[in-house]
C-alpha cells in the first residue's frame, strides 16, 4: 500500500470518528447538559448550530445546519488525521516490502 493510500485511508477513518463524536455528543446533550469545555474542542463545528433552537425539520436551514455541524466535524477530523498520518509516514523508515 502506498503512503498516499495510507494517508487517504487514515483520513477516511478520521472522518468516521469525527462523525461518531458529533453524533454521540449530540445524543448525550439531549439527556444531560454538557460543558462547553468538552463540546467545543471535541466538536468545534457545533458552533454553527449554537443558535439553532428550533426542531430539525425538512427545511433548507435544517439541512444546512446538519451538513455544517455534523459533516463539518467529519471533514475537520479527516483533515487533521490525514495530516497527522502524512507526518507520521514521512518520518517512518521505508518498510521492507517497498
Amino acid at each position: 500500500m502506498t503512503i498516499s493510500r495510507k494517508v487517504f485511508f487514515a483520513g477516511c477513518c478520521g472522518g468516521v470518528i469525527g462523525l461518531c463524536v458529533a453524533i454521540v455528543l449530540g445524543w448525550l446533550s439531549s439527556y444531560m447538559s454538557l460543558s462547553p469545555m468538552l463540546i467545543l474542542p471535541l466538536w468545534p463545528t457545533s458552533i454553527f448550530g449554537i443558535a439553532f433552537n428550533g426542531p430539525l425539520t425538512f427545511s433548507w436551514t435544517s439541512i444546512l445546519v446538519i451538513v455544517l455541524v455534523f459533516g463539518g466535524n467529519a471533514l475537520l477530523y479527516s483533515i487533521v488525521v490525514a495530516l497527522l498520518a502524512r507526518l507520521f509516514f514521512s518520518f517512518m523508515p521505508t518498510s521492507h516490502e517497498e
Binding site: 446533550s29 463540546i39 457545533s46 433552537n53
Partner: peptide
C-alpha cells in the same frame, strides 16, 4: 430553564 431543542445544538438554550 435550560433546554435542548435539537442534537445539532449541544450547547443548549
Amino acid at each position: 430553564s435550560e433546554w435542548n431543542n435539537t442534537i445539532a445544538n449541544p450547547a443548549n438554550h
